[in-house]
Each structure stands twice: as C-alpha cells, then as structure tokens.
Design a protein around this nucleic acid. Structure first.
Lengths: 149, 149
DNA sequence: TCCTTATTGCAAATCATTTGCAACTATCAT
DNA sequence: ATGATAGTTGCAAATGATTTGCAATAAGGA
C-alpha cells in the first residue's frame, strides 16, 4: 500500500496516467515481500490480469527506478537477471541464501566506517555502497543440519 | 606472468592443451591492471592476434573462473556486462568510479565484523561477502574540482 | 463527449553470453 | 618423425534478459 500510494502521488504530479495495468503491478509489488525478477513479477501480476505484457512490467519498473522507488540489482549468484527491490529509501544491504535464494535485508553502521576509511586512504569520494553477503540462511542451515543427522 | 604460470601448471595437470590463443589471452590478462569485460579483453587480445574469436575469450575466462583464477562480477553501475577480475585468491572488495569506470580493489577487516554480526542476529551462515563502493575516484574528484574552479 | 497524448501489447531489435559443429591441431604413443 | 585421439577453435546460430518501434487503445482534462 506504500509504493502504490507514493507512485500514485507522483503520477498525478507529473503528466502521467494511472492505468489498470500499472495499478495491478504496483499493488502486486506492494504485497510482495521478496525481490522479484521481472519475470517473477509478471507471473504474479498475470494471476490478476493475464493480458499484461512483460514489456509493461519493465516499463513500470524502470519508471519506479527513475523515481527512486525501487532499486534494480544483479546479485552475483542467481543468474544474470535483475531483481527489483521495492526498497524503503535509504541504503541497506542484502544477504542472499545460496540454497533457497531468499534475499534478506539488513543494516550495519560499520559500512560507514568502511566508506570513510576508503575515502581517507584514496582521496576518492564514496557516494554509496553495496554489501551483499552470500551463504545459507538460518532455515536452510537448520534443514541441512537435520538432514546430515 | 602469474596467472599464465599458474594456468599453465593446471593445464598440464589436467588433460587440457596449451594453445597459442590461450597463451595470448593469459598473457594479456596478466599484463592488464583493470577488470575487463569480455569485449574489452577481446580488443586487447586482437592487437596480438586479430583472428581470435570472442567465444574463445569466453571459454578461456570460464575455465579460469572454474579454476578459481578469475572472478566474474557484475557491478551495478556500468551496464550489465560481466567484468573479469584476475584476482589474487582471497576475498577483497571493490570501488567503482562512476566517472571513469576505474575499478579499485581494497580490503577492510570490518567486513568480517559485519558478517559475524549478521550470523549472530539471524542464525545464517555467511560464506563470503561482496562489498562495492561507488563514487568518484581521487583523480576524477580532483578533475571535477579543477573544472568547477 | 471529444481531443490530445500517454500507454499498451506485440513483434522485432539489441546486448551479453552460450552452444553445436565441422575443421583444426596439441599432445602422446609409436 | 608420424599418426591417432581427443581437446580446441572459429563461426553461425541459439539463448536469455531487456529494450524499442509502432499502430491501436484509452486516460484525463477541456
């Protein structure tokens, strides 16, 4: 309900139009707690309206990205498909489970220290950082232990 | 000379063959201090032998990747082409300049703390981490300042 | 309701990478 | 050296992800 609302506001503010397709895509994105690929999102969206086309998904996603309402990321494990993160604004980081491909968001202030140290050592200016941890999520880890006896 | 040597060793160890194409690709990769895309590497390689084909580049790169001698990464700025990092073994992190697209490697022990904290909070097991900082490198930053007066 | 122009679905294009295949060639045994 | 075997190459076509051109459609304001 959050993304939809904000997107709606911005659509009205510019000279864009709210279409049923867009509404469904936004609502689906809101209801989702994962970071879907375009294809995955299409699947969900088509449960509501099967005539919606993949290119409409992409166009909506790209607009949301330009508005800063979602972030597109390619994780280094799971194929080369972009995953779309309907992220709360503000930097946050990700853990990707190599077993079930779940994406877990987290935050950690130490990243700021890493940025500061890099700036200090190199004279660069750091604008933002991406941290992705890969491994086994708690559930998969338990499952693995149980299985192994 | 490092990658070449190591690759040579492993080629002999398995039942593979050292071809002139492979030798040129390995030597080019050794001489390079950047993280090239397959296409960029092809350009350099073709300065030596213009008949070498992109698919040979990919095949060699994928073999090196499987051997752990290079890492393929997709950074989130610079389009969706993979960049191949003839990395020293061991985890290290990257800074990507959004202006000149230079890739600078760095290390920082705080990443271990971030991993440990995440494991503690979630029960997950973290196998490795990726940190990519984006911004302006020292040179581009200076250039920008000079330009701005 | 009508007009203007944003938006859609579809097909074709594009970009990055992979794969099938016939020709070629390292490498090893002779 | 010579030949046989099987790894390797170049090329073209296939694949997967995403983008784009376009004619038809439909919001949203006048």
């Amino acid at each position: 309900m959050d993304l939809s609302l904000e997107a709606d506001k911005r659509i009205r503010a510019s000279h864009r139009r709210m279409t049923p397709q867009r509404r469904i895509i936004l609502e689906t994105l809101d209801a989702l707690d994962i970071h879907p690929t375009a294809e995955e999102l299409l699947g969900r969206v088509q449960e509501v309206d099967s005539s919606i086309h993949l290119s409409t998904i992409y166009r909506t996603l790209r607009w949301l990205e330009a508005e800063g309402l979602v972030q597109a990321r390619i994780f280094n494990d799971d194929r080369r498909a972009e995953r779309f993160d309907p992220a709360a604004p503000g930097e946050h980081y990700h853990f990707v489970c190599q077993e079930c491909h779940a994406v877990i968001e987290f935050n950690n202030l130490l990243v700021n220290a890493i940025k500061a140290q890099f700036e200090l050592h190199t004279g660069a200016r750091v604008d933002f950082g991406s941290v992705v941890l890969y491994g086994l999520c708690g559930d998969c880890r338990k499952a693995l232990l149980a299985e192994a006896g």
